[in-house]
């Protein structure tokens, strides 16, 4: 079937099968940041935004995004780089395989939660697995990132 949707702000078309999974379609479209880490919707690596809402692209049929806005990390490179500075300052990106999915959820969380506590952050990101970092360095980076405006200059991370 024919599919029309907005991928990272640009109109996109695809010829898909009824059982095409969104994750596979996105990778076919060159969005290689979208990773597959499990077979059971449990690792968070494939997280993308569908109309701004974080979704596991491994568990969404491509047909369901007809007419919708799909955003992958490729579409948020600037925002990702800002958070990325905080993450790399902690050395917490490590192998990086879980990083795109994590960043998608962090950027969504930032819009959704106002000044979340560490506990709220943990709850929000519980579905994003990471095997390298033990999560502590990620948490340090996330809290510093979320509190960056209060520290004064928004561009602090880039210095």
């Amino acid at each position: 079937m024919e599919l029309h949707f907005i991928l990272n702000g640009k109109p996109a078309d695809a010829l898909i099968k009824a059982d095409t999974i969104l994750l596979d379609l996105l990778r076919e479209k060159g969005c290689y940041s979208v990773k597959r880490g499990c077979d059971t919707s449990g690792c968070g690596l494939c997280t993308v935004l569908i109309n701004g809402v974080p979704s596991l692209s491994c568990s969404v049929l491509a047909a369901r995004v007809e007419g919708k806005q799909v955003t992958t990390l490729e579409g948020m490179e600037r925002e990702a780089a800002v958070f990325g500075e905080f993450l790399t300052a902690e050395g917490a990106e490590q192998c990086g395989y879980c990083t795109p999915g994590l960043i998608m959820n962090i950027l969504a969380m930032e819009k959704e939660l106002n000044h979340p506590s560490e506990e709220e952050v943990k709850e929000y990101l519980a579905g994003n697995l990471c095997r390298c970092s033990g999560y502590m360095g990620q948490m340090r980076a996330i809290m510093k990132y979320l509190n960056r405006a209060e520290g004064g200059d928004d561009s602090e991370a880039c210095q």
């Binding site: 940041s33 992958t72 490179e77 500075e85 300052a89 050395g91 990086g96």
Partner: peptide, 20 residues
């Protein structure tokens, strides 16, 4: 605490892994 040399590519989701 020098940032990793591959940090930028990693945090912006570049196609750097085998399957990519």
């Amino acid at each position: 605490a020098v940032p990793k040399v591959d940090a930028r590519a990693i945090v912006t989701g570049k196609p750097i892994y085998t399957d990519d």
